[in-house]
Write a protein that binds this DNA or RNA. Structure first.
Length: 109
DNA sequence: TATATGACGGACG
DNA sequence: GCGTCCGCCATAT
């Protein structure tokens, strides 16, 4: 193994996202911070963009720190994301999610 | 190896 | 409350 640098930053993002319980959400920056690399919020989003359409990773539970959704050149993605969150019991406050209520934090070792 | 990019975050007006 | 600017760091080419 090559534990020196980041073996697979994206892979760690997927593992953490898969640990998010249903009906909960988390911000990109929170995911990066949980991986030990605060400030790499953009890389978390980049990892999501690399996810296949048949992925088992609940990428829809990863949103902006402000509670708003996001997508680059694909607004349909946001609609799917919102639909899945509502299906899990997440109540939207307009176009925003009250992270103070649904905000989830990963368990620290 | 270096340059450009990018599902972001926070600060400022 | 909303729009805009700068900075952060891993991936891609």
């Amino acid at each position: 193994m090559a534990p020196s640098s980041r073996p697979n930053f994206r892979d760690r993002v997927y593992v953490l996202v898969r640990s998010i319980p249903s009906g909960r959400v988390i911000g990109y920056g929170h995911v990066a911070g949980a991986l030990g690399v605060a400030g790499a919020a953009r890389q978390v989003g980049y990892a999501m963009a690399a996810l296949p359409p048949d992925t088992e990773v609940p990428w829809h539970r990863v949103i902006h720190s402000a509670g708003t959704l996001a997508s680059k050149g694909d607004p349909v993605r946001v609609l799917i994301q919102r639909s899945r969150l509502e299906a899990e019991g997440v109540a939207f406050l307009g176009d925003r999610v009250p992270m103070g209520t649904y905000g989830w934090m990963p368990p620290e070792p």
